[in-house]
Design a protein around this nucleic acid. Structure first.
Lengths: 208, 208
DNA sequence: TTTTTTTCTTGACCTACTTCATTTTTATTG
DNA sequence: CAATAAAAATGAAGTAGGTCAAGAAAAAAA
Protein backbone atom coordinates (compact mmCIF):
# COMPACT_ATOMS: atom_id res chain seq x y z
CA UNK A 1 0.00 0.00 0.00
CA UNK A 2 1.26 3.43 -0.99
CA UNK A 3 0.96 6.30 1.43
CA UNK A 4 0.93 9.77 0.00
CA UNK A 5 3.04 12.23 1.96
CA UNK A 6 2.85 16.00 1.47
CA UNK A 7 6.03 17.17 -0.21
CA UNK A 8 7.08 19.46 2.61
CA UNK A 9 7.16 16.56 5.02
CA UNK A 10 9.56 14.45 3.00
CA UNK A 11 12.53 16.03 4.71
CA UNK A 12 11.03 17.11 7.99
CA UNK A 13 13.28 17.21 11.05
CA UNK A 14 12.29 13.75 12.22
CA UNK A 15 13.10 11.89 9.04
CA UNK A 16 16.22 13.93 8.24
CA UNK A 17 17.64 13.22 11.67
CA UNK A 18 17.06 9.52 11.09
CA UNK A 19 19.58 9.63 8.27
CA UNK A 20 22.17 11.16 10.60
CA UNK A 21 21.51 8.64 13.36
CA UNK A 22 21.74 5.89 10.82
CA UNK A 23 25.06 7.24 9.65
CA UNK A 24 26.52 7.57 13.14
CA UNK A 25 25.38 4.05 14.03
CA UNK A 26 27.70 2.72 11.34
CA UNK A 27 30.60 3.70 13.57
CA UNK A 28 29.39 3.62 17.17
CA UNK A 29 26.33 1.96 18.72
CA UNK A 30 24.03 4.54 20.22
CA UNK A 31 21.58 3.87 23.05
CA UNK A 32 18.17 5.48 22.74
CA UNK A 33 19.22 8.17 25.17
CA UNK A 34 22.37 8.91 23.21
CA UNK A 35 20.34 8.94 20.03
CA UNK A 36 18.09 11.56 21.55
CA UNK A 37 21.05 13.59 22.79
CA UNK A 38 22.63 13.58 19.36
CA UNK A 39 19.38 14.50 17.62
CA UNK A 40 18.81 17.45 19.88
CA UNK A 41 22.34 18.74 19.27
CA UNK A 42 21.74 19.11 15.55
CA UNK A 43 19.56 21.67 13.89
CA UNK A 44 17.98 21.22 10.50
CA UNK A 45 18.58 24.01 8.02
CA UNK A 46 17.25 24.41 4.48
CA UNK A 47 19.63 26.05 2.06
CA UNK A 48 18.67 27.38 -1.36
CA UNK A 49 20.84 26.86 -4.41
CA UNK A 50 23.65 29.46 -4.63
CA UNK A 51 23.30 30.28 -0.94
CA UNK A 52 26.51 30.38 1.12
CA UNK A 53 26.85 28.61 4.44
CA UNK A 54 30.48 29.66 4.98
CA UNK A 55 32.32 32.74 3.77
CA UNK A 56 35.92 33.99 4.13
CA UNK A 57 36.46 36.27 7.09
CA UNK A 58 33.73 34.72 9.21
CA UNK A 59 34.49 31.88 11.58
CA UNK A 60 32.83 28.63 10.56
CA UNK A 61 30.66 27.95 13.62
CA UNK A 62 29.06 24.70 12.42
CA UNK A 63 29.87 21.27 11.14
CA UNK A 64 27.27 20.28 8.56
CA UNK A 65 25.90 16.87 7.57
CA UNK A 66 24.24 16.85 4.16
CA UNK A 67 20.80 15.24 4.29
CA UNK A 68 19.80 16.26 0.80
CA UNK A 69 21.46 18.33 -1.89
CA UNK A 70 25.04 19.19 -2.80
CA UNK A 71 27.72 21.63 -1.68
CA UNK A 72 31.08 22.89 -2.81
CA UNK A 73 33.93 24.33 -0.72
CA UNK A 74 36.36 26.55 -2.63
CA UNK A 75 38.86 29.35 -2.35
CA UNK A 76 39.26 32.42 -4.54
CA UNK A 77 42.87 33.50 -5.01
CA UNK A 78 44.06 37.07 -5.48
CA UNK A 79 44.03 36.72 -9.24
CA UNK A 80 40.38 35.69 -9.10
CA UNK A 81 40.76 32.00 -9.79
CA UNK A 82 38.55 29.50 -7.97
CA UNK A 83 39.97 26.27 -6.55
CA UNK A 84 37.72 23.59 -5.10
CA UNK A 85 38.77 21.75 -1.96
CA UNK A 86 35.74 19.59 -1.44
CA UNK A 87 32.31 18.52 -2.63
CA UNK A 88 29.60 17.00 -0.47
CA UNK A 89 26.33 15.27 -1.28
CA UNK A 90 23.97 13.17 0.84
CA UNK A 91 25.66 11.57 3.86
CA UNK A 92 28.85 13.61 3.57
CA UNK A 93 30.09 16.24 6.00
CA UNK A 94 31.22 19.68 5.00
CA UNK A 95 32.89 22.62 6.70
CA UNK A 96 35.94 24.85 6.42
CA UNK A 97 37.72 22.39 8.64
CA UNK A 98 40.64 24.68 9.51
CA UNK A 99 38.25 27.43 10.45
CA UNK A 100 36.01 25.09 12.40
CA UNK A 101 38.52 23.23 14.55
CA UNK A 102 40.73 26.22 15.29
CA UNK A 103 37.78 28.65 15.43
CA UNK A 104 39.64 31.07 13.16
CA UNK A 105 38.16 33.08 10.30
CA UNK A 106 37.39 30.96 7.26
CA UNK A 107 39.27 31.22 3.97
CA UNK A 108 36.76 29.14 2.05
CA UNK A 109 33.39 29.75 0.50
CA UNK A 110 30.91 26.93 0.95
CA UNK A 111 27.94 27.18 -1.37
CA UNK A 112 24.88 25.06 -2.12
CA UNK A 113 24.92 23.63 -5.64
CA UNK A 114 21.24 22.60 -5.31
CA UNK A 115 18.39 23.34 -2.94
CA UNK A 116 19.60 21.42 0.07
CA UNK A 117 18.89 20.29 3.61
CA UNK A 118 21.65 20.05 6.19
CA UNK A 119 21.91 19.13 9.83
CA UNK A 120 24.35 21.32 11.64
CA UNK A 121 25.95 21.21 15.06
CA UNK A 122 27.45 24.23 16.73
CA UNK A 123 31.12 24.13 17.71
CA UNK A 124 30.49 24.42 21.46
CA UNK A 125 27.76 21.79 21.37
CA UNK A 126 30.13 19.40 19.65
CA UNK A 127 32.74 19.99 22.35
CA UNK A 128 30.08 19.27 24.95
CA UNK A 129 29.04 16.04 23.28
CA UNK A 130 32.61 14.82 23.03
CA UNK A 131 33.42 15.76 26.61
CA UNK A 132 30.28 14.24 28.09
CA UNK A 133 30.44 10.88 26.38
CA UNK A 134 33.37 8.75 25.29
CA UNK A 135 31.27 7.34 22.46
CA UNK A 136 30.86 10.73 20.76
CA UNK A 137 34.57 11.36 21.15
CA UNK A 138 35.16 8.05 19.38
CA UNK A 139 32.78 8.97 16.60
CA UNK A 140 34.49 12.26 15.80
CA UNK A 141 37.89 10.61 16.09
CA UNK A 142 36.86 8.08 13.45
CA UNK A 143 35.50 10.84 11.21
CA UNK A 144 38.79 12.72 11.39
CA UNK A 145 40.84 9.58 10.77
CA UNK A 146 38.80 8.58 7.76
CA UNK A 147 39.05 12.12 6.45
CA UNK A 148 42.81 12.16 6.87
CA UNK A 149 43.22 8.76 5.21
CA UNK A 150 41.07 9.99 2.32
CA UNK A 151 43.17 13.12 1.83
CA UNK A 152 46.36 11.07 1.92
CA UNK A 153 45.04 8.95 -0.92
CA UNK A 154 44.02 12.07 -2.78
CA UNK A 155 47.40 13.77 -2.43
CA UNK A 156 49.23 10.66 -3.60
CA UNK A 157 46.87 10.27 -6.51
CA UNK A 158 47.31 13.88 -7.54
CA UNK A 159 51.10 13.59 -7.32
CA UNK A 160 51.24 10.45 -9.42
CA UNK A 161 48.67 10.95 -12.18
CA UNK A 162 48.01 13.04 -15.27
CA UNK A 163 44.98 15.30 -15.61
CA UNK A 164 43.21 12.67 -17.69
CA UNK A 165 43.91 9.89 -15.18
CA UNK A 166 42.69 12.10 -12.32
CA UNK A 167 39.39 12.64 -14.14
CA UNK A 168 39.00 8.95 -14.98
CA UNK A 169 39.64 8.11 -11.35
CA UNK A 170 37.04 10.60 -10.16
CA UNK A 171 34.48 9.12 -12.54
CA UNK A 172 35.23 5.67 -11.19
CA UNK A 173 35.23 6.56 -7.50
CA UNK A 174 32.50 9.19 -7.40
CA UNK A 175 30.05 8.48 -10.20
CA UNK A 176 27.28 10.06 -8.11
CA UNK A 177 29.01 13.41 -8.01
CA UNK A 178 29.84 13.85 -11.66
CA UNK A 179 26.43 14.88 -12.92
CA UNK A 180 25.70 17.12 -9.96
CA UNK A 181 28.71 19.42 -10.00
CA UNK A 182 29.44 22.00 -12.69
CA UNK A 183 32.37 21.16 -14.93
CA UNK A 184 34.40 24.23 -14.00
CA UNK A 185 34.11 23.25 -10.32
CA UNK A 186 35.15 19.67 -10.98
CA UNK A 187 38.08 20.86 -13.08
CA UNK A 188 39.26 23.12 -10.26
CA UNK A 189 38.94 20.22 -7.81
CA UNK A 190 41.06 18.03 -10.04
CA UNK A 191 43.66 20.73 -10.58
CA UNK A 192 43.07 21.65 -14.21
CA UNK A 193 41.20 24.28 -16.22
CA UNK A 194 37.62 23.86 -17.35
CA UNK A 195 38.80 24.13 -20.97
CA UNK A 196 41.18 21.25 -20.53
CA UNK A 197 38.56 19.08 -18.82
CA UNK A 198 36.20 19.85 -21.69
CA UNK A 199 38.78 18.52 -24.13
CA UNK A 200 39.35 15.40 -22.05
CA UNK A 201 35.61 14.72 -21.97
CA UNK A 202 35.15 15.21 -25.70
CA UNK A 203 38.10 12.97 -26.49
CA UNK A 204 36.47 10.25 -24.35
CA UNK A 205 33.13 10.58 -26.08
CA UNK A 206 34.68 10.30 -29.54
CA UNK A 207 36.59 7.20 -28.47
CA UNK A 208 33.49 5.29 -27.34
CA UNK B 1 77.35 21.96 37.32
CA UNK B 2 77.81 19.88 34.19
CA UNK B 3 77.19 16.15 34.33
CA UNK B 4 78.88 14.03 31.70
CA UNK B 5 76.62 11.37 30.25
CA UNK B 6 77.87 8.45 28.17
CA UNK B 7 76.75 8.95 24.59
CA UNK B 8 74.65 5.79 24.43
CA UNK B 9 72.51 7.02 27.28
CA UNK B 10 71.53 10.27 25.64
CA UNK B 11 68.51 8.62 24.07
CA UNK B 12 67.80 5.86 26.48
CA UNK B 13 64.20 4.69 26.91
CA UNK B 14 63.56 6.89 29.92
CA UNK B 15 64.56 10.18 28.36
CA UNK B 16 63.09 9.40 24.93
CA UNK B 17 59.74 8.61 26.51
CA UNK B 18 59.83 11.94 28.30
CA UNK B 19 59.69 13.69 24.93
CA UNK B 20 56.56 11.74 24.03
CA UNK B 21 54.87 12.44 27.36
CA UNK B 22 55.76 16.05 27.00
CA UNK B 23 54.22 16.08 23.55
CA UNK B 24 51.00 14.39 24.64
CA UNK B 25 50.65 16.75 27.58
CA UNK B 26 50.31 19.62 25.14
CA UNK B 27 46.91 18.24 24.22
CA UNK B 28 45.57 16.35 27.24
CA UNK B 29 46.63 16.45 30.89
CA UNK B 30 47.91 13.08 32.00
CA UNK B 31 47.90 11.82 35.60
CA UNK B 32 50.99 9.96 36.73
CA UNK B 33 49.18 6.68 36.27
CA UNK B 34 48.13 7.58 32.75
CA UNK B 35 51.68 8.71 32.03
CA UNK B 36 52.93 5.34 33.09
CA UNK B 37 50.28 3.55 31.04
CA UNK B 38 51.21 5.52 27.95
CA UNK B 39 54.93 4.96 28.45
CA UNK B 40 54.52 1.24 28.77
CA UNK B 41 52.45 1.09 25.56
CA UNK B 42 55.30 2.46 23.48
CA UNK B 43 58.46 0.67 22.57
CA UNK B 44 61.70 2.39 21.69
CA UNK B 45 63.31 1.32 18.43
CA UNK B 46 66.58 2.45 16.89
CA UNK B 47 66.59 2.67 13.12
CA UNK B 48 69.69 3.01 10.97
CA UNK B 49 69.84 5.35 7.99
CA UNK B 50 68.33 3.75 4.86
CA UNK B 51 66.44 1.20 6.96
CA UNK B 52 62.75 0.72 6.19
CA UNK B 53 60.09 0.68 8.88
CA UNK B 54 57.19 0.19 6.44
CA UNK B 55 57.12 -1.51 3.05
CA UNK B 56 54.39 -2.06 0.43
CA UNK B 57 52.56 -5.33 0.81
CA UNK B 58 53.03 -5.55 4.57
CA UNK B 59 50.46 -4.13 6.93
CA UNK B 60 51.74 -1.18 8.91
CA UNK B 61 51.36 -2.49 12.46
CA UNK B 62 52.71 0.56 14.29
CA UNK B 63 52.26 4.27 14.67
CA UNK B 64 55.65 5.87 15.18
CA UNK B 65 56.67 9.02 17.07
CA UNK B 66 60.06 10.37 16.03
CA UNK B 67 62.30 11.03 19.03
CA UNK B 68 65.43 11.68 17.01
CA UNK B 69 66.23 11.52 13.32
CA UNK B 70 64.23 11.89 10.11
CA UNK B 71 61.94 9.78 7.94
CA UNK B 72 60.34 9.88 4.56
CA UNK B 73 57.14 8.17 3.36
CA UNK B 74 56.89 7.65 -0.39
CA UNK B 75 55.33 5.58 -3.13
CA UNK B 76 56.96 4.10 -6.20
CA UNK B 77 54.72 4.08 -9.27
CA UNK B 78 54.76 1.47 -12.03
CA UNK B 79 57.08 3.58 -14.15
CA UNK B 80 59.57 3.70 -11.29
CA UNK B 81 59.02 7.25 -10.15
CA UNK B 82 59.09 8.12 -6.46
CA UNK B 83 56.53 10.46 -4.89
CA UNK B 84 56.84 11.63 -1.33
CA UNK B 85 53.72 11.89 0.84
CA UNK B 86 55.31 12.91 4.11
CA UNK B 87 58.47 13.75 6.02
CA UNK B 88 58.90 13.50 9.78
CA UNK B 89 61.57 14.77 12.15
CA UNK B 90 61.65 15.09 15.95
CA UNK B 91 58.19 15.30 17.53
CA UNK B 92 56.33 14.29 14.38
CA UNK B 93 54.36 11.10 13.82
CA UNK B 94 54.77 8.86 10.83
CA UNK B 95 52.98 5.84 9.40
CA UNK B 96 51.25 4.64 6.25
CA UNK B 97 48.05 6.00 7.71
CA UNK B 98 45.72 4.17 5.32
CA UNK B 99 47.46 0.91 6.05
CA UNK B 100 47.51 1.54 9.78
CA UNK B 101 43.93 2.58 10.43
CA UNK B 102 42.34 0.06 8.07
CA UNK B 103 44.95 -2.63 8.79
CA UNK B 104 45.39 -3.25 5.08
CA UNK B 105 48.68 -3.86 3.28
CA UNK B 106 50.76 -0.72 2.91
CA UNK B 107 51.43 1.02 -0.41
CA UNK B 108 54.15 3.25 0.99
CA UNK B 109 57.79 2.85 1.84
CA UNK B 110 58.88 4.58 5.02
CA UNK B 111 62.62 4.93 5.31
CA UNK B 112 65.00 6.54 7.79
CA UNK B 113 66.91 9.47 6.29
CA UNK B 114 69.30 9.50 9.27
CA UNK B 115 70.16 7.18 12.14
CA UNK B 116 66.99 7.58 14.18
CA UNK B 117 65.13 6.70 17.34
CA UNK B 118 61.38 6.18 17.32
CA UNK B 119 58.74 5.25 19.85
CA UNK B 120 56.15 2.95 18.38
CA UNK B 121 52.79 1.70 19.53
CA UNK B 122 51.17 -1.42 18.17
CA UNK B 123 47.74 -1.12 16.54
CA UNK B 124 45.96 -3.29 19.10
CA UNK B 125 47.59 -1.53 22.01
CA UNK B 126 46.41 1.79 20.64
CA UNK B 127 42.86 0.47 20.39
CA UNK B 128 43.14 -0.66 24.01
CA UNK B 129 44.35 2.71 25.17
CA UNK B 130 41.56 4.53 23.39
CA UNK B 131 38.91 2.14 24.64
CA UNK B 132 40.10 2.15 28.23
CA UNK B 133 40.40 5.87 28.71
CA UNK B 134 38.45 8.78 27.25
CA UNK B 135 41.57 10.96 27.50
CA UNK B 136 43.55 8.81 25.08
CA UNK B 137 40.61 8.77 22.71
CA UNK B 138 40.63 12.56 22.85
CA UNK B 139 44.35 12.68 22.17
CA UNK B 140 44.15 10.58 19.02
CA UNK B 141 41.08 12.50 17.90
CA UNK B 142 43.04 15.73 18.14
CA UNK B 143 45.99 14.21 16.25
CA UNK B 144 43.73 13.14 13.41
CA UNK B 145 41.95 16.50 13.28
CA UNK B 146 45.20 18.43 13.18
CA UNK B 147 46.50 16.09 10.50
CA UNK B 148 43.36 16.56 8.42
CA UNK B 149 43.47 20.34 8.78
CA UNK B 150 47.12 20.29 7.74
CA UNK B 151 46.42 18.26 4.63
CA UNK B 152 43.54 20.55 3.68
CA UNK B 153 45.92 23.50 3.78
CA UNK B 154 48.45 21.53 1.76
CA UNK B 155 45.97 20.54 -0.95
CA UNK B 156 44.74 24.10 -1.31
CA UNK B 157 48.27 25.41 -1.43
CA UNK B 158 49.24 22.90 -4.09
CA UNK B 159 46.18 23.75 -6.17
CA UNK B 160 46.80 27.48 -6.04
CA UNK B 161 50.55 27.91 -6.37
CA UNK B 162 53.38 27.50 -8.85
CA UNK B 163 56.33 25.18 -8.27
CA UNK B 164 58.48 28.09 -7.17
CA UNK B 165 55.87 29.38 -4.70
CA UNK B 166 55.43 25.89 -3.27
CA UNK B 167 59.14 25.68 -2.60
CA UNK B 168 59.28 29.18 -1.07
CA UNK B 169 56.38 28.25 1.17
CA UNK B 170 58.07 25.06 2.30
CA UNK B 171 61.23 27.00 3.17
CA UNK B 172 59.16 29.43 5.19
CA UNK B 173 57.04 26.87 7.04
CA UNK B 174 59.54 24.07 7.52
CA UNK B 175 63.01 25.60 7.67
CA UNK B 176 64.12 22.70 9.90
CA UNK B 177 63.37 20.12 7.26
CA UNK B 178 65.08 21.66 4.29
CA UNK B 179 68.66 20.76 5.13
CA UNK B 180 67.79 17.28 6.31
CA UNK B 181 65.94 15.89 3.31
CA UNK B 182 67.54 15.14 -0.06
CA UNK B 183 66.57 17.50 -2.84
CA UNK B 184 65.02 14.79 -5.01
CA UNK B 185 62.78 13.78 -2.11
CA UNK B 186 61.70 17.35 -1.42
CA UNK B 187 61.02 17.90 -5.12
CA UNK B 188 58.79 14.83 -5.22
CA UNK B 189 56.95 16.06 -2.10
CA UNK B 190 56.32 19.41 -3.74
CA UNK B 191 55.19 17.86 -7.02
CA UNK B 192 58.07 18.74 -9.31
CA UNK B 193 61.23 17.12 -10.67
CA UNK B 194 64.57 17.34 -8.91
CA UNK B 195 65.99 19.09 -11.97
CA UNK B 196 63.39 21.80 -11.78
CA UNK B 197 63.90 22.32 -8.05
CA UNK B 198 67.63 22.59 -8.71
CA UNK B 199 66.96 25.40 -11.17
CA UNK B 200 64.65 27.18 -8.73
CA UNK B 201 67.29 26.99 -6.02
CA UNK B 202 70.08 28.27 -8.25
CA UNK B 203 67.96 31.14 -9.46
CA UNK B 204 67.35 32.11 -5.82
CA UNK B 205 71.04 32.01 -4.97
CA UNK B 206 72.00 34.21 -7.88
CA UNK B 207 69.31 36.73 -6.89
CA UNK B 208 70.62 37.18 -3.36
C1' DT C 1 8.40 31.57 -24.19
C1' DT C 2 11.53 34.96 -24.66
C1' DT C 3 15.48 37.18 -22.59
C1' DT C 4 19.44 37.08 -19.88
C1' DT C 5 22.99 34.83 -17.55
C1' DT C 6 25.88 31.08 -16.85
C1' DT C 7 28.38 27.23 -18.47
C1' DC C 8 30.67 24.69 -21.99
C1' DT C 9 33.25 24.22 -26.39
C1' DT C 10 36.70 25.06 -29.77
C1' DG C 11 40.81 26.97 -32.09
C1' DA C 12 45.30 29.18 -32.00
C1' DC C 13 49.09 30.23 -29.49
C1' DC C 14 51.96 30.00 -25.31
C1' DT C 15 54.73 28.58 -21.10
C1' DA C 16 55.83 26.13 -16.88
C1' DC C 17 57.62 22.24 -16.20
C1' DT C 18 59.47 17.56 -17.89
C1' DT C 19 62.68 14.49 -20.13
C1' DC C 20 66.98 12.89 -21.38
C1' DA C 21 71.83 12.87 -21.51
C1' DT C 22 76.14 14.41 -19.53
C1' DT C 23 79.10 16.45 -16.12
C1' DT C 24 80.16 18.01 -11.52
C1' DT C 25 79.74 17.74 -6.69
C1' DT C 26 78.96 15.48 -2.45
C1' DA C 27 78.56 11.51 0.42
C1' DT C 28 79.74 6.66 1.58
C1' DT C 29 82.56 2.76 1.96
C1' DG C 30 86.56 -0.18 1.96
C1' DC D 1 92.19 8.69 1.81
C1' DA D 2 91.17 6.47 -2.48
C1' DA D 3 87.53 4.44 -4.83
C1' DT D 4 82.82 4.16 -5.62
C1' DA D 5 78.24 5.34 -5.38
C1' DA D 6 74.65 8.69 -4.86
C1' DA D 7 72.89 13.23 -5.46
C1' DA D 8 72.82 17.63 -7.73
C1' DA D 9 73.61 20.74 -11.71
C1' DT D 10 73.22 22.08 -16.44
C1' DG D 11 71.96 22.36 -21.39
C1' DA D 12 68.89 21.28 -25.19
C1' DA D 13 64.63 19.76 -26.81
C1' DG D 14 59.83 18.30 -25.93
C1' DT D 15 55.00 18.31 -24.11
C1' DA D 16 51.07 18.51 -20.94
C1' DG D 17 48.30 21.65 -19.86
C1' DG D 18 47.30 26.87 -19.64
C1' DT D 19 45.61 31.32 -21.64
C1' DC D 20 42.81 34.14 -24.38
C1' DA D 21 39.07 35.10 -27.33
C1' DA D 22 34.83 34.08 -29.53
C1' DG D 23 30.81 31.41 -30.30
C1' DA D 24 27.33 27.69 -28.97
C1' DA D 25 24.55 25.46 -25.67
C1' DA D 26 22.18 25.12 -21.54
C1' DA D 27 20.05 26.90 -17.51
C1' DA D 28 17.73 30.51 -14.93
C1' DA D 29 14.92 34.34 -14.72
C1' DA D 30 11.45 37.21 -16.31
Amino acid sequence: MLILVPKHELFNPVSSKKSLINYVNNFVELSSEETHQLESSFEEVKVKKRQFIVQPGFTNMHRAFVVKGAFRAYIITNDGQEHTLQFAIENWWISDFNSYIYQHPATLFIVALEDSTILQIEYNQEQELKKSNHKFETFFRIMAEKGLAFEHRRILFNLTNSAEARYENFLLNFPNFVNRVPQYALASYLGMTTEFLSRIRNKRIKKS
